[in-house]
Simulated assay, not measured.
Amino acid sequence: MAKTVALLDYGSGNLRSAHRALEKVGADVTVTSDPTVATGADGLLVPGVGAFAACMAGLNAVHGPRIIGQRLAGGRPVLGICVGMQILFDEGHEHGVRTSGAGEWPGVVERLHAQILPHMGWNTVSRAPGSQMFAQLSDEERFYFVHSYGVRDWTLETDDLTTPPAVAWAEHEDDRFVAAVENGPLWATQFHPEKSGDVGLQLLANWLETL
Score class of each variant (00 low, 15 high):
Gln132Ala: 15
Leu59Phe: 14
Gln202Val: 15
Asp28Thr: 00
Arg16Val: 03
Val199Cys: 15
Leu211Val: 15
Ala205Thr: 07
Ala41Leu: 08
Arg142Thr: 14
Asp198Trp: 03
Pro35Gln: 08
Ile67Lys: 01
Glu110Gln: 15
Arg76Cys: 03
Cys82Phe: 01
Ser100Leu: 13
Leu186Pro: 07
His113Gln: 15
Gly197Lys: 00
Gly107Glu: 05
Glu209Tyr: 08
Cys55Glu: 04
Val167Leu: 04
Asp174Val: 06
Arg98Gln: 13
Thr162Pro: 05
Leu117Ala: 01
Leu201Gln: 12
Glu157Cys: 06
Pro118Asp: 08
Lys3Trp: 07
Thr39Ser: 14
Phe177Cys: 08
Glu141Ile: 08
Ala51Ser: 14
Gly200Glu: 05
Ala128Gly: 07
Val83Pro: 01
Ala21Cys: 05
Asn14Val: 09
Arg76Phe: 09
Pro164Lys: 07
Ser131Gln: 05
His192Tyr: 09
Ala57Met: 14
Ala6His: 09
Ser17Thr: 06
Pro185Trp: 12
Ala2Arg: 14
Leu15Asp: 02
Pro47Ile: 04
His93Gly: 00
Ala54Val: 08
Leu15Lys: 04
Glu140Arg: 13
Asp174Ala: 14
Ala168Asp: 04
Arg20His: 09
Gly103His: 12
Trp169Asn: 02
Arg111Trp: 00
Ser138Val: 06
Leu112Ala: 10
Leu201Ala: 11
Gly11His: 04
Ala179Arg: 07
Pro35Asn: 08
Gly101Thr: 10
Lys195Trp: 05
Thr189Pro: 02
Val37Tyr: 10
Gln86Phe: 03
Arg152Asn: 11
Gly103Ala: 11
Phe145Gln: 02
Ala6Ile: 11
Val46Met: 14
Thr32Trp: 13
Ala41Val: 10
Ala179Asp: 04
Thr4Gly: 06
Pro129Arg: 01
